[in-house]
């Protein structure tokens, strides 16, 4: 559960500051970006990649790292499936 999954930003600030809609393998969800907004010199933009953990963008990664990590995580099987299932599930 400590593994972040790569997600791509598709919309900024849908619900105000520090929020974004991100896409993981075609599934989309609103996430919190406070921990990356503060960190970088350049503001987060649509198309950027982040490592996502329990609904929070934890760090920014480049597209190549995102692609590598995604490919690797798909190979990991259950860990990725669990994360993806949780990410794409409806709110309780």
């Amino acid at each position: 559960m400590c593994v972040g999954i790569p997600a791509q930003v598709v919309e900024l600030a849908p619900s105000g500051p520090h929020t974004a809609i991100v896409d993981v393998d075609g599934a989309q969800r609103e996430v919190n970006t406070i921990m990356v907004d503060d960190e970088a010199d350049v503001p987060l933009a649509t198309g950027d990649w982040v490592l996502l953990h329990v609904g929070f963008a934890m760090s920014r990664i480049d597209a190549a790292e995102a692609a590598e990590t995604l490919a690797f995580m798909r190979e990991l099987g259950s860990v990725y499936d669990e994360e993806f299932e949780a990410f794409s599930s409806d709110l309780p």
Partner: peptide, 27 residues
């Protein structure tokens, strides 16, 4: 209930004011 994010638990609390919503935090 299973949640993906602690923020989902908070959102559930706001939607169900008659319930006490507790998030079991681990990690």
């Amino acid at each position: 209930r299973i949640v993906y994010s602690p923020l989902d638990a908070l959102a559930l609390a706001e939607r169900t004011p008659d319930r006490q919503v507790v998030f079991l935090a681990v990690g």
